[in-house]
Design a protein around this nucleic acid. Structure first.
Lengths: 147, 147
DNA sequence: ACTCATAGTTAGGTAGCCTAATAGTTAGGC
DNA sequence: GCCTAACTATTAGGCTACCTAACTATGAGT
């Protein structure tokens, strides 16, 4: 694969992602949860997680994760408990209210995005569906190198 | 197209995009330009543009665009001039220094992203390349609705 | 000419990210 | 067993980027 072709593809993909950032923001619905908060909740929803693990998965530093968690805790959406096996660690888990809020938030956003997808042709949707796996692999390849 | 399928695709795509957005940020190179600033410069590079046009293309409000532009102007990367045809309007254009900085910034980021793309298989790269058009159309479809 | 719309800036506030410094806890070498 | 080094999380302080509301200046319509 020639470097020029990779470079050219990188440029086009980067530009498309730039606009997608905007799209993500436009998916912010009137539910008092920012995109970042929904992401954090989605991570926490996988089970009780350490703060450092949340930070790693979200791609931010630990203090930033702490801050988000405190905000979510104040909103009653998550709770913090000490890890019984390691007194240094804090386990973050969803509250019932948090679970409900997350379900609703994901639903609202997926519906909005689904509306956009419905405006595409079937081949276009197929193209996006087919690219997701490769995008995820690319994300892993690059985020591994710059944690 | 069934709604469930759209919904499911929306969820997977949204999660992939979320990670890709982090990836974009991780591409920040040591060149004193944030991703947002590079985006703004890329918009300005298309020719002298009004502040409101920059805001529209970047998906932010006008005051936010003004702020970015002032920052870039202080760095000597863009310049503001009065529109000869409309004394209310301000035209923003790249300076020579800004053009050079943008070229360098885009180059560094495309090289980094190109490195990641090189780690994919050819079909995976094809999948991404094939999805870009659809992603852009989707971006337009959704961003049009929430300016 | 008067009014209303448009373009941009300024002011004030918030979220979210960062680094550096701190407190407490665990693990490993000796 | 203990002491040091490493790890986990929080706090403190600072920055960017975004927002809304209010303001100034200019243009356009009747």
């Amino acid at each position: 694969m020639s470097e020029e072709v990779l470079y050219e593809l990188a440029g086009r993909y980067r530009e498309s992602l730039r606009r997608a950032v905007y799209l993500m923001r436009s998916l912010d619905v009137d539910d008092d949860l920012s995109t970042g908060q929904v992401s954090t909740l989605n991570i926490v929803a996988e089970g009780p997680v350490r703060v450092s693990e949340i930070a790693r998965k979200a791609g931010v530093r630990v203090p930033s994760a702490t801050e988000q968690i405190i905000r979510l805790e104040n909103a009653g959406l998550v709770q913090r408990t000490q890890d019984a096996k390691d007194a240094r660690a804090v386990l973050v888990s969803l509250t019932a209210k948090g679970g409900a809020a997350l379900t609703s938030a994901n639903h609202a956003r997926n519906i909005m995005l689904g509306d956009g997808l419905a405006q595409l042709t079937q081949p276009e949707r197929d193209a996006i569906a087919g690219a997701i796996g490769a995008m995820n692999k690319l994300n892993r390849a690059l985020t591994g190198s710059t944690p």
